[in-house]
Nucleic acid binder design. Structure first.
Lengths: 145, 145
DNA sequence: GTGCCTGCAAATTTTTTGCACGTCG
DNA sequence: CGACGTGCAAAAAATTTGCAGGCAC
């Protein structure tokens, strides 16, 4: 399966639900802009394509996209939920600069392996994880000096 | 510094603030019960010692305890914030069972080391991290079969 | 028609803030 | 007095829910 739209349609069909225009709009935004976006931001962007789009629908669709494995919820520490597109992408975690809030995506396969082992050692079968590193980026370290 | 109460007093004094009875109550609860607690739960418990204690004060105190490094905010995936006591304890992360919600504390020094290296490789100076593993515990796996 | 979907507004939930009063040096 | 601290209630922010109407089989 390489088409996210078809993947979403299939996911919905399996639950007797439909890929409505509104749901497509939200998915399309993710496909166009691979950003981290809050529901509010998605709603704004969505209204450009469908002015009647309701915020509640965005929330409802985000839940569905998450269940479908097409989007991932991200909490970077401020109280706001963000979502990122997660289709056909390699898994990754995040580092966020505590000063300028800039964040980048990172991955270390050795950490992933150790997480797996750590869980197993405690009798768990690992199904997922969230890891966020906090630090100071180079620019902010230099500013601080 | 081995007395959390004195540590908190000192932290507050450095900001020209005081260790009031209310603040002590919240800290004491943490010292007595090393649980993960929501602000609401802490408020309930706090009222047993000081019936007039306000929820807003609990929130304000939690912020202070966190700044002081005596408590740590924990978000396990439901919308609720939890806090855990974090004085004189070794750092640890968490695994939570997605079925029964039970969670345990875990630590792998090798992961910690790799996180440090990973951050540095991206130009960051690591100051902290949050890692939560999600999985199925043994009991729930057996139930599921 | 039946069941899924939607937008809207109202309701919930979680957290923060404004304010008047109290306290302590 | 002056700064800090508190409880309360109101406010704010984020998310969920109820509902009447609409659409597609």
């Amino acid at each position: 399966m390489k088409d996210p739209i078809e993947a979403f349609r299939k996911f919905l069909a399996d639950k007797n639900q439909k890929l409505t225009p509104q749901r497509q709009v939200v998915l399309r935004i993710f496909m166009d802009r691979h950003d981290h976006m809050t529901p509010e931001e998605l709603h704004q962007l969505g209204r450009e394509m469908d002015p009647g789009l309701g915020l509640a629908t965005v929330y409802r669709t985000l839940k569905l996209l998450e269940e479908a494995g097409l989007a991932r919820e991200l909490r970077l520490g401020d109280g706001v939920a963000r979502y990122e597109y997660d289709f056909g992408r390699e898994h990754h975690d995040h580092i966020i600069c505590t000063a300028c809030k800039r964040n980048i995506e990172v991955l270390d396969p050795r950490i992933e392996t150790l997480q797996e082992a750590l869980a197993r050692r405690h009798g768990f079968e690992l199904t997922g994880h969230k890891m966020i590193l906090y630090g100071l980026c180079q620019a902010c370290r230099e500013d601080g000096e």
